[in-house]
C-alpha cells in the first residue's frame, strides 16, 4: 500500500520532470553552448590527432589514416570482385537460357 502510493507519486514526478527536461533540451539557450562545447572538443581532438599523425608520418611510418585508407581500399576491392562475380553468374545464366 505504501509502495503503491509512493509509486504513484514517483510516476507523477517522473512525467513532469521528463516534460520539463524535454522543454530545456529543445531550448537554444542550452543547445547553443552545448553544441559549441562539443564542436570545440571535437576540433581539439582532431587537431591533436593531426599533430600526432604528422609526427608519425615524419618518421616515415604509415599513419593510422594511411592504414585506414589502405584497409578501406582492400574492402572496396573485395566488394567490387563480388559485384563482378554476381554479374558473371547472371551473364552465364542468361547465356544458358538463350
Amino acid at each position: 500500500m505504501i509502495w503503491d502510493t509512493w509509486k504513484k507519486g514517483f510516476d507523477a514526478w517522473e512525467n513532469a520532470t521528463a516534460k520539463y527536461t524535454e522543454h530545456w533540451m529543445k531550448s537554444p539557450l542550452v543547445l547553443g553552448p552545448t553544441g559549441a562545447l562539443l564542436g570545440g572538443a571535437m576540433k581539439a581532438k582532431a587537431a591533436y590527432d593531426k599533430a600526432a599523425s604528422q609526427w608519425v608520418g615524419s618518421l616515415g611510418m604509415a599513419t593510422k589514416r594511411d592504414q585506414e585508407r589502405a584497409l578501406h581500399t582492400l574492402n572496396q576491392l573485395e566488394s567490387r570482385l563480388l559485384d563482378l562475380e554476381e554479374r558473371l553468374v547472371d551473364a552465364t545464366t542468361s547465356h544458358k537460357k538463350d
Binding site: M25, L31, L38, G39, M42, K43, K45, A46, D49
Partner: peptide, 18 residues
C-alpha cells in the same frame, strides 16, 4: 532538433573520431 542545430557540426565529429 539537435541535429538541425547550426552549432552541431557533423563533420567535426567524424573528423575527430572517424
Amino acid at each position: 532538433t539537435w541535429t538541425r542545430m547550426p552549432s552541431f557540426n557533423v563533420g567535426d565529429i567524424v573528423e575527430a573520431f572517424g
